[in-house]
Computed example of a mutant assay.
Amino acid sequence: MDLNSKNRAFLFDMNGTMIDDMHFHTRAWFKVLNDLGAGLTLEQTKLHMYGKAEEMFDRIFGAGKFSDAELREIILNKEKAYQEVFRPYLKLINGLGAFLQKAKAAGIGLAIGTAAPKTNVDYVLDGLQLHSLFPVIVGAEDVTTSKPDPEVFLTAAAQLKVAPENCVVFEDSPKGVEAAMRGGMKAVVITTFHEAEDFAHLDNVLVTVKDYTDPLLDSLFD
Rank of each mutant, 00 (worst) to 15 (best):
F10Q: 07
V136N: 07
T145F: 06
Q159L: 12
I60T: 08
V205S: 11
A105M: 10
M22I: 02
A115R: 00
G16Q: 03
L92T: 04
K147R: 15
D198P: 03
M56A: 08
A105D: 14
P117M: 10
K31F: 05
H25V: 02
V162D: 05
G16N: 05
L40W: 05
L3S: 08
K91Y: 04
F221Q: 08
L96D: 08
M22V: 09
H201I: 01
H25Q: 06
L216G: 10
F99V: 07
L76F: 02
G184D: 06
D172W: 04
H25R: 03
A103Y: 04
T213V: 08
P148A: 09
L220I: 13
G95D: 10
G113R: 02
N166F: 11
D198N: 09
G16F: 01
Q44T: 11
G127N: 11
A81W: 03
A98E: 15
H23T: 08
I137Y: 00
D149M: 13
T192Y: 09
Y89D: 14
K46L: 03
C167T: 06
A179Q: 05
E197V: 09
T208C: 14
V189H: 06
A196R: 14
T45E: 02
G37E: 12
M22Q: 11
T155I: 11
Y82N: 01
A9V: 10
G183R: 00
F193M: 08
N166I: 01
M1K: 12
F12A: 09
N94I: 05
E79L: 02
E151P: 04
C167S: 12
L220Q: 10
L42C: 04
L40N: 00
A69Q: 14
L216T: 13
A53N: 13
E54L: 01
L33T: 00
Y123S: 05
